Amino acid sequence: MDWTDDAIIRLRSLWDEGLSTAEIGRRLGISKNAVVGKAHRLDLPARPSPIRRDPATLSAPREPAPRRVSGPTLPSLAEPSAAPVIPAPPAAVTPKPEVLPVAAVTAPPVNRPARPSLVAAMTAPIRLAPRAPACCWPIGEPGTATFRFCGDPALNNKPYCGPHADIAYVRVRDRREDVA
């Protein structure tokens, strides 16, 4: 909108009447935000908040937050004398169970294939066979037992198979075709 002198004079008079910015916008045929922006640029007096507040219901000012403690808040571990010594509660004396030696059991050797060590198994790279990407077209109602995805082989660099890609990717028409 071009702000003509007449429109600015009308804006100032409606502003002085105390109308809302939305009502001024309706009367001038412009948006509320255009009214707010122009009023700000013209440095018109600020409007009271449209949220009506009863002064009696306003609460007392809040207390300031407690000050943060600067520096270490725990005792230093370097100085053992700085840490308070808390005596351990007296432990109930329980008799230790008697440990009996286990007799060595000799079993005949079993022919098992050698297993790789656990460390070697954890550090070896995992190689998975490459899988052909599957079509992600949803079939059925999500959340029901019959819901599934198509699963047919997907096209290269597309998440869908051929028939579903035809549905999902529609060629944008040239608007010049509609003119003729």
Score class of each variant (00 low, 15 high):
174 D>V: 10
93 V>Q: 05
6 D>N: 10
37 G>F: 05
125 P>T: 10
153 P>A: 04
82 A>K: 07
119 V>F: 05
63 E>R: 06
15 W>C: 04
17 E>N: 05
136 C>K: 15
59 S>Q: 11
178 D>A: 03
46 A>K: 12
38 K>P: 06
133 P>C: 03
49 S>A: 05
93 V>P: 01
98 E>F: 04
21 T>G: 08
147 F>C: 00
100 L>A: 03
131 R>K: 14
127 R>C: 03
45 P>R: 10
78 A>G: 15
169 Y>L: 13
50 P>C: 00
179 V>G: 01
135 C>L: 13
134 A>I: 13
73 T>M: 09
36 V>F: 02
129 A>V: 12
18 G>V: 04
116 P>C: 00
52 R>N: 11
127 R>S: 11
93 V>E: 09
42 L>R: 06
133 P>H: 04
17 E>Y: 03
86 I>Y: 09
63 E>W: 02
103 A>C: 05
120 A>V: 09
146 T>D: 04
97 P>A: 13
173 R>L: 12
123 T>R: 14
117 S>L: 10
5 D>C: 00
42 L>C: 11
138 P>T: 09
44 L>S: 00
54 D>S: 04
59 S>A: 14
34 A>C: 03
75 P>K: 07
84 P>S: 14
121 A>L: 12
93 V>C: 05
128 L>Q: 08
84 P>E: 07
179 V>F: 02
125 P>G: 08
3 W>A: 06
146 T>R: 14
83 A>K: 15
88 A>Y: 03
101 P>D: 09
72 P>Q: 01
150 C>V: 14
85 V>F: 10
135 C>W: 13
149 F>G: 02
79 E>V: 15
164 H>E: 08
9 I>L: 15
151 G>K: 14
137 W>H: 10
28 L>T: 04
29 G>C: 13
74 L>F: 14
26 R>P: 00
121 A>D: 07
111 N>Q: 06
116 P>N: 02
93 V>M: 03
30 I>M: 10
64 P>A: 00
152 D>C: 15
175 R>F: 10
45 P>T: 04
165 A>E: 08
91 A>R: 15
74 L>Q: 12
165 A>Y: 13
21 T>V: 12
147 F>Y: 14
173 R>T: 10
173 R>I: 07
128 L>E: 11
60 A>M: 09
66 P>F: 01
70 S>T: 15
139 I>D: 01
102 V>K: 14
106 T>Q: 00
7 A>G: 06
43 D>E: 12
175 R>C: 03
35 V>I: 12
164 H>S: 09
74 L>N: 15
